[in-house]
Design a protein around this nucleic acid. Structure first.
Lengths: 153, 153
DNA sequence: TTTGAAAATAGCAACCG
DNA sequence: CGGTTGCTATTTTCAAA
């Protein structure tokens, strides 16, 4: 098993990042290879850890979750990040958590049903976390793109 | 076709957001329903727009893309966002674009192979965009969570 | 990497509660 | 009317070339 990805792998990734539920026979057809090869390459890329999994892309607003908010968090001490992240992970509305450097120490994304829900979650579940010094928030008005880097090259 | 999602729909979403490539027979087994029902519910949720699609979760660092950077962008005038977003979408390394309010006008996520690549991309493709007044950036050291809100309730 | 064949799954139609 | 069952076409998966 070769470790480096080639053009065929990239082509498979492009197709499946656009629709992870596309069946491998169709992927094979579009990539100009046999279905067996698609299966093999996918197993290889999963084993390499290049592919971590597959997930659905959901429209939360259509499910009644109207708010998407990003929070940039400053810590009292940078070394507290591990503890703070642990606590953040306990909040179900928190869907992304990045340990970061630059402007903020921790950067997260949360979903809320409405502004009431958001305020409550913000005040009761985020601000109360020990070690957080400050938070800057910005509400997403609209997601204009959610895509992958292109593998064609 | 009922418009509201029920417990069964939520259970299906939970299973498939964790692994969008799980076959529907397995989903049915775990949700305690028949495969036919899974197909039916999935078609319903796609038609409702609740499910927009499915994608692979990739580990970019394992593909040689070592840097993930978030950029908070201030515009010269808030009304320029449409034009600026158009330009940002032309940059292939830009994978997420949010029109936002609060701290920044536009908020994006980019991937780069290394710091050389990042600097070049930043200076040549981002800073040169007409209408951008300022940019604040923070590098993701580590993604500690990428998940969905939980639908159990 | 492809091919070919067996096992499993998808997708639909007719039926049931 | 939504759910299940059962049937057929398609897909997956593996072994051999």
């Amino acid at each position: 098993m070769k470790d480096r990805l080639d053009t065929v792998d990239h082509r498979i990734l492009t197709l499946l990042t656009e629709d992870a539920q596309m069946n491998y026979t169709e992927v094979a057809k579009r990539a100009g290879i046999s279905p067996g090869t698609v299966h093999m390459r996918m197993r290889k890329m999963r084993n390499l850890g290049v592919i971590r999994g597959a997930t659905l892309t959901l429209d939360y607003s259509k499910m009644g979750w109207k708010l998407t908010v990003f929070l940039g968090i400053y810590l009292r001490e940078a070394s507290l990040y591990e503890k703070v992240i642990e606590k953040l992970l306990e909040v179900p509305e928190v869907v992304k958590v990045h340990h970061s450097t630059g402007k903020y120490d921790v950067f997260i994304k949360v979903h809320a049903k409405d502004s009431i829900h958001y305020r409550q979650l913000y005040q009761e579940s985020i601000l109360t976390i020990e070690g957080i010094q400050g938070v800057e928030s910005f509400i997403s008005l609209e997601e204009r793109a959610s895509r992958h880097i292109s593998f064609d090259s």
